[in-house]
Computed example of a mutant assay.
Amino acid sequence: MDTEIGGLNLDWIPLSGIRLAKAGVQFDAVRIDGDAGRCVADAMEELTGGDPGPIVADALGSRAVYFLVPPRSTSHRSWPAVAVPFNSGPRYASYVPVPALSGRTWPLSWRFPPSGPDRFVHTPLLNSVVQQLR
């Protein structure tokens, strides 16, 4: 399935509904649950002038927030316990829920949709903000 934003092809986003994307291919992700995740998303928005990169929010359960970062950028960093990195390796795989840009995607939604094919959350900045949560 192909999805376009401003003429840019982002084929990892479903045309409708939700799909699980394998982390480490198009992107890695960092999940932060609850109010902490929302607080980090707010801080990232402020620090980046309103364009922090793609962030997905879940309205149910632990109310997870997924920060989509460049592929292979999470595995060699130290993350506090509040942040769960999603990536893949030779013997394991992580999957991240990705909603369509519009339509019925509840309980997932784009807190900040992608703005380009190679535009992701800045991993070192995210790590720094999460480290400050402690």
Rank of each mutant, 00 (worst) to 15 (best):
G37H: 07
R104Q: 01
L126N: 14
S109R: 05
V129I: 15
S102M: 09
A23S: 10
R111E: 08
G50N: 05
V65Q: 00
N9M: 02
G49N: 11
M1S: 11
W12N: 03
H76V: 02
P99S: 08
P70L: 01
G6F: 12
L60W: 12
N127K: 15
A59R: 15
L101W: 14
W110Q: 05
L20P: 01
L8Y: 13
T48F: 11
H122F: 04
W12I: 07
A29W: 03
T48D: 11
A81S: 01
L125N: 06
R38K: 14
V40Y: 11
G50R: 01
R77G: 00
G61M: 09
A57Y: 05
A57E: 11
L47T: 07
Y66V: 05
D28G: 12
S94T: 01
K22A: 15
P124M: 07
S102D: 13
G6I: 06
V84N: 02
D11G: 07
P70N: 04
V98L: 08
L15D: 13
S115Q: 14
I5G: 05
S16D: 07
E45N: 13
P52E: 02
E46L: 14
Q26D: 15
A64L: 07
A41M: 09
P54W: 13
I5P: 04
Q26K: 12
R77I: 03
G103T: 04
T3D: 01
V69N: 13
P124D: 08
A81M: 00
P124Q: 12
S88L: 01
L101R: 03
S78K: 11
S115A: 13
L20R: 05
R91A: 12
V40D: 15
V96D: 09
A83K: 03
A81H: 02
P124N: 06
P71A: 06
R19N: 06
M44C: 05
A41L: 02
A100R: 05
L126M: 10
I5A: 05
A59K: 15
D33G: 14
L60E: 03
D118H: 10
V82N: 03
A57D: 10
V30I: 14
V25N: 10
P70H: 00
L126W: 12
W110N: 05
G24W: 06
I32C: 14
A83D: 09
R104T: 00
D51V: 11
L60Q: 09
A41N: 13
L108M: 08
L15P: 15
A21E: 15
D28F: 07
S115D: 12
V121T: 09
G89Y: 03
G24L: 02
R72C: 06
V82A: 08
A21T: 12
V84Y: 02
I13N: 01
V30C: 15
S88F: 00
N127A: 14
V30K: 08
R104G: 03
L68R: 08
A100C: 04
R111T: 09
E46N: 08
P107C: 04
P117E: 10
S16I: 05
N127V: 01
V96E: 02
T123W: 12
D51R: 14
A29S: 15
D28R: 08
V130R: 10
I55F: 07
D2S: 11
A100I: 00
D42N: 14
R38P: 12
D42K: 14
L126A: 13
V25R: 02
V65Y: 07
D118Y: 10
Q131W: 05
V98G: 14
D28S: 12
Q26L: 11
L125C: 06
